[in-house]
């Protein structure tokens, strides 16, 4: 049940991996689309936390091109609907997330990413 709302907040946390460690890149993913209740208030409040470029790039990699490349200043209904779908309705069920910097592989199984590090990777 990784959704992009959470993926967009997640950087690699392996030892000494501090730059270019975001966003983690999905690999060999299996997706599931699940309808979620539309909550425009939440999306509005969440927008300031979003790294727009990472969100658009990741959505595209998962096959969703509904978001504009540049973050629009005006937030209209259509944008909110598209954001809702991208952030809350796309679930990554299987696959992995790869750190663009250190290449650590965080496997996803049953919708749950395994964030455990080996002892030598702990900061």
């Amino acid at each position: 049940m990784v959704r992009l709302v959470t993926h967009n907040l997640l950087a690699c946390h392996a030892k000494d991996c501090n730059t270019n460690n975001f966003p983690l890149v999905f690999q060999n993913v299996q997706l599931e689309i699940r309808e979620a209740e539309f909550n425009p208030g939440f999306i509005q409040s969440f927008l300031p936390k979003i790294e727009w470029n990472a969100l658009v790039k990741t959505a595209q990699e998962l096959g969703d091109t509904s978001l504009p490349i540049d973050q629009p200043e005006m937030i209209d209904d259509e944008l909110l609907k598209n954001l809702h779908h991208v952030l809350f309705e796309i679930h990554i069920v299987e696959g992995a997330m790869i750190c663009p910097n250190c290449k650590h592989n965080y496997p996803i199984s049953d919708g749950i990413p395994n964030m455990l590090l080996a002892e030598h990777e702990i900061a």
């Binding site: 990784v2 959470t6 964030m115």
Partner: peptide
Amino acid sequence: DLFLQDIGQG
């Protein structure tokens, strides 16, 4: 959203 994580690892 659920994560398998050891909080002692940060």
